[in-house]
Design a protein around this nucleic acid. Structure first.
Length: 491
RNA sequence: CGGGGUGUAGCGCAGUUGGUAGCGUACUACGUUCGGGACGUAGGGGCCGGAAGUUCGAGUCUUCUCACCCCGACCA
């Protein structure tokens, strides 16, 4: 089996790439670094969107939409921000084309140069804070809790489907608060919301932490992160929530009158997750047979495949299948009955395994006769035969089972691949030979962090929020440290 | 931007000393099949990335050019 996929153990990144394409999620487009998200991949994104959107609204946020273009001058207002993004911005300089004077095609009309160039947003803090300035006068206008579903562009050097593309889809929340404490609470609330989503819907365990000075978002005071471990032992940052302090308020002059009647700058957060989560979903759970989707995010939760010879058998089986489909849908499941006559059952089995459909029902003439159904689960690839009347209950149970099982497997994988290192030799041995998360002491300086990165390509993924105090000495410099930080090679 | 590589059918590839393009797969039709990616027969599909040059003749040789991929620096 699985001869159509590159073996995961043989070449992990080839396996990943094959899988994205073969499972029909996305493909490279004619535009450098930009992907086409195909219907099946987009359906997964829609599931992610709808759950997150529900969670944002349940915590008091509302959606809005801000422009794709940002005037260049806005960017220079916040020094650290421009520094962080300048090198990867797409810039609009003209607004018109014309026929080429030599008759070959069209050219940019030099007379149509923009007075001020427009940046295609790599993130929207600047345009949003420039807008918020007019919306916020008083503490009564606060908090402002807005989210936007959008696309952004970051001109990365190298791209990979879902993991890093020039244009990507995301949500970005931008909130304004009257006090520092409120803003910090918001940043934490969202970090916890992301954790809830990634662990309970995607089935991927995360480490919550705060980024180091050099890894934090350009313009933030603190960047909180959730870090996940992929099956090849590399880390993936799944989402970030930034406490921005008053940096953007000051840069865009967003002041309000507080309850004491005094002017003050507002406190801000921003936070986001992207289509990269789909990459995480793949790399955390998929195997050599293809995708393994958590039931809560699977576009198709149950597929029914008929096995038959001739139209008489098909008719009989279809009656049963359609009835089962109706029952399962009534129970809230999304079900596909694949009665295509153009593919054989074996082909369909392989196809739905490739696409990660959690549960497959097969009904053949034998089952029709005996009142049974063959039921197969994607996560364990096991099959059993059950009575037709028990199908709905059994499938509902399986949905929970599979959801929990893939999470449990991912937790176990992470536990088996999280190490502590106390010496430089131990540290480099693990990074070079085993991969995974490494908890180690660090002296807290950017110089040491940089040196470790240069020597091993491992970075500090996060300073875990729940890590206990512990006296130790830095693996590289030997200087004192009082807590371990999380190292890994990362995507 | 540095180092390496590749452009030939939808996709994956072969193409010898230069002689007018082929394999696998996918596609179309018909038939037999159908409980784990079926088989047979017959078909269709090509400006050989682009431009210029050498030659009677270029997928093949020369020069230029464009695009993409991999490894680094950058990054959600």
């Amino acid at each position: 089996m699985a001869k159509f996929l590159t073996n995961r153990e043989e070449n992990y990144s080839q396996w990943y790439n094959d899988l994205v394409i073969k499972a029909d999620m996305a493909e490279n487009s004619a535009v450098r670094g930009c992907m086409v998200i195909k219907p099946y991949g987009y359906a997964i994104w829609e599931k992610i969107q709808s759950e997150l959107d529900r969670m944002f609204k349940a915590t008091g946020h509302v959606n809005a939409y801000f422009p794709l273009f940002i005037p260049k001058s806005f960017f220079s207002r916040e020094a650290a921000h421009v520094e962080g993004f300048a090198k990867e911005c797409a810039v609009v300089t003209h607004y018109r084309l014309k026929n080429s004077p030599d008759g070959k095609g069209i050219v940019v009309d030099p007379d149509a140069r923009l007075e001020e160039e427009l940046i295609v947003r790599p993130t929207s803090e600047t345009i949003i804070w420039n807008t918020y300035k007019d919306w916020i006068q008083s503490y009564r206008d606060l908090p402002l809790l807005i989210n936007q579903w959008a696309n952004v562009v970051r001109w990365e050097m190298r791209t990979r489907l879902f993991l890093r593309t020039t244009e990507f889809l995301w949500q970005e929340g931008h909130t304004a608060h009257a006090t520092r404490q409120e803003a910090e609470e918001e940043a934490t609330r969202i970090l916890n919301l992301y954790t809830d989503f990634v662990e309970n819907y995607m089935g991927v365990p995360v480490i919550k932490g705060v980024k180091t000075e050099s890894e934090k978002f350009a313009g933030a005071i603190d960047t909180y992160t959730i870090e996940m471990l992929m099956q090849d032992g590399k880390a993936l940052q799944g989402g970030t929530s930034h406490f921005l302090g008053q940096n953007f308020a000051k840069a865009f002059d967003v002041q309000f009158t507080n309850q004491e009647g005094k002017l003050d700058y507002v406190w801000a957060t921003s936070w986001g997750v992207t289509t990269r989560l789909i990459g995480a979903l793949i790399m955390a759970h998929a195997d050599n047979n293809g995708l393994v989707l958590p039931p809560k995010l699977a576009p198709i939760q149950v597929v029914i495949v008929p096995i038959y010879k001739g139209n008489d058998q098909l008719d009989k089986i279809s009656d049963i299948a359609v009835d089962l489909k109706r029952q399962l849908e009534k129970a809230g499941l999304s079900v596909k009955y694949d009665n295509r006559d153009t593919q054989k059952p074996g082909f369909k089995f392989a196809e739905y395994e490739l696409k990660g459909v959690p549960v497959r029902l097969a009904i053949g003439p034998r089952d029709a006769e005996e009142g049974t159904v063959e039921i197969a689960r994607r996560d364990t690839l096991t099959k059993e035969t059950i009575r037709r009347e028990n199908v709905v209950g059994h499938v509902l149970g399986l949905m929970d089972d599979i959801q929990q099982n893939i999470f449990r497997k991912a937790v176990e994988f992470r536990e088996n691949n999280t190490f502590t290192a106390d010496t430089w030799e131990e540290f480099t041995d693990i990074i070079e030979n085993r991969g995974g998360f490494v908890l180690a002491h660090w002296d807290g300086t950017a110089e040491t962090e940089e040196k470790i990165k240069d020597l091993t390509k491992a970075t500090i993924r996060a300073i875990p929020l729940n890590s206990p105090e512990e006296k130790g000495s830095c693996i590289l410099s030997g200087k004192p440290s009082n807590r371990r930080v999380l190292f890994a090679r990362a995507y």
